[in-house]
Write a protein that binds this DNA or RNA. Structure first.
Lengths: 342, 342
DNA sequence: CGGGTAATTGTAAACGTTTTCAGGACCATC
DNA sequence: GATGGTCCTGAAAACGTTTACAATTACCCG
């Protein structure tokens, strides 16, 4: 492969390896002439430094490790897009691995990547993974995405799940919906738990509002099945509030299949505002989460800590969410602005 | 960080570094007793080999490089899922980078990854990138996904684009559609070109079938806009055939917004069969592409070449596509099976 | 009981960089 | 013209592994 080493360049350019290294890296303490000459020969020979050898001595890899729970759906492609884009912009590589839900898997993945990365971006919303994350953050700069903020000891960028669910619920109630079916996320998922909590808190303020709680796992299929079960029940809910958009898509599919009109017969809403949400039939009312931005900030923080030695442990942020009203809850028809709940 | 080196383990276990290395790697030429002792101390100290140092001498990195054109939508999350899963299963890491459309960017990305990966999986359906891919394959084991097969000199796994488009078109014509609007993919995209070719070849067999050609770039937004333009035209097409599902979603959105019924007024179909296609309203008739399998096979080939030295240059495969008939073209209503075209 | 063989272990070189340290050239200043 | 300083360059050590080779040990068989 890349058989051409720094030695070859040095010989060819008539200088020492030290000079080549300097000319190629910072360029300091090297005459402009020799620098150009070295760079020219390096380019001509197609020289590329061996990153292993370099990281051996510099103790840096120029790579960020990314650990994700799984890779289904548009949410994660958005997230990865933000991460990848920022990593490239800042001159870092991205080592990606997924399917790490529990603590054991996280630890194993971190072990595998040890020495190959300078730091980590981890999304692991499962409660059980928290100890492993704390352990990880003890030995590596790490940014954790979407973890409950209270589980401190590592840098986190959270999502305004609670607030988003609160405004969505207020919106639903203002529209006149009283019987709310909530399709949950996976057990132990902190994001989903916060969303449910927001819903319950607002619902609790209203005597006539009832909440049904349905199983779900964030995948389309589970939204589809939960909806089918709801349709088999004696009374139809007013609205099906899915803990994420993917399940809302499944719900819409099941309703369409059953000939139930949305939003006339049943309203549907989601959470995340993935890109396709606006193109659905009907366009999905949901809570906007700036997914790609999440990845962007995470990498920016990490690289900042890596290159400037900025302390990272205590950093904390919450990206705000916002209600996006489209047609799937009947909003356009009833004009919620005039009827805002107390 | 990982300050514990092989030397520490050696000292602690009372053996030489060579013995530690042997005990930890193959385990050959080491007494069972010492092997266990070494492994125990290594585990106790939390020793993890420095991958850079190792790859320096073994000339292997245990990592596959993945280059993708961009990361939008569900297609790529499916693809990455297949790649990631297989890489992990075979004990390889995955270095991912995207947004590499033209030849220059491909070359730059390959340069960046040089020395960090053992081989490449590349998806780069742009015609202009072919020379760069050929150059890449000269120096690295590489599997190219979805390239036109005729651009040989590297291993390729293609998609049965032409055949898929042919059966879709036959299906559409059998359903009675005559005025077909095709929403193209990006200029120079070989996949999209093959799909269009399949459509045109079949349409050419029928005197009364006309094809309109609309701009598109594989993104939802472009399907949405192309459809809006079509609706402004004097005559409505019978069917809007989108070169991928993402654009079909955009088309469905535009039609819903305009109050045009699908499939009653206009039929819509796509290509890829991304997971959400079946949940759309109406469920999307499309051509199934085993996206994740594509990634699985690519990594399997690559790792096979890497570990067994299996020659890879000439390997060639085409994953078959298949028509998936759902409701968006009115199939269920008119029963295509009775009216199959000549 | 001695010699040979096989198996286990240790020593040291090598991989390709970066970087410290020292040497040398050149210039300016006195 | 000597001296001091600055700037450029080179020699060599170091990073943490793997592995060829040498050395030691244990064992078996004659």
């Amino acid at each position: 492969m890349s058989a051409v080493t720094i030695r070859d360049v040095a010989r060819e350019a008539g200088v020492s390896v030290a000079t080549v290294s300097r000319a190629l890296n910072d360029g300091a303490h090297v005459t402009l002439g020799t620098r150009e000459r070295v760079r020219a020969t390096a380019a001509r020979l197609g020289y590329v430094p061996h990153s292993g050898a370099r990281s051996l001595i510099t103790r840096r890899t120029g790579t960020v490790g990314v650990l994700l729970p799984d890779l289904y759906g548009e949410f994660f492609s958005e997230l990865i897009r933000g991460i990848d884009q920022t990593a490239q912009r800042l001159g870092f590589h991205m080592l990606l691995a997924s399917s790490h839900s529990d603590a054991r898997e996280i630890a194993a993945a971190v072990g595998n990547m040890r020495g190959r990365v300078d730091g980590f971006v981890v999304m692991s919303p499962d409660r059980a993974a928290m100890p492993a994350l704390a352990e990880l953050a003890r030995t590596y700069p790490a940014v954790v995405l979407g973890a409950g903020l209270e589980h401190g000891s590592f840098a986190t960028i959270g999502i305004g799940n609670y607030e988003g669910a609160v405004s969505m619920t207020r919106h639903l109630i203002a529209l006149g919906h009283r019987d709310i079916a909530f399709v949950r996320g996976p057990d132990g998922n902190l994001e989903a738990a916060d969303r449910l909590r927001g819903l319950l808190d607002v619902a609790g303020e209203h005597r006539d509002v009832t909440v049904r709680d349905c199983r779900g796992d964030f995948r389309q299929e589970s939204g589809y099945q939960a909806t089918q079960e709801l349709l088999r029940a004696s009374a139809r809910p007013d609205v099906i509030f899915c803990a994420n958009d993917a399940m809302a898509i499944g719900a819409l599919g099941a309703l369409h299949e059953a000939g139930v009109r949305v939003p006339d017969d049943v309203a549907v809403c989601g959470f995340d505002d993935i890109p396709i949400a606006q193109y659905l039939t009907p366009p999905l009312t949901t809570v906007r989460v700036p997914i790609a931005d999440l990845g962007v900030s995470a990498v920016e923080w990490l690289v900042d800590a890596l290159t400037n030695g900025a302390p990272i442990d205590a950093r904390r942020a919450v990206v705000p969410t916002s209600l996006v009203v489209r047609a799937s809850c009947g909003a356009s028809r009833r004009d919620p602005l005039r009827r805002t709940a107390l």
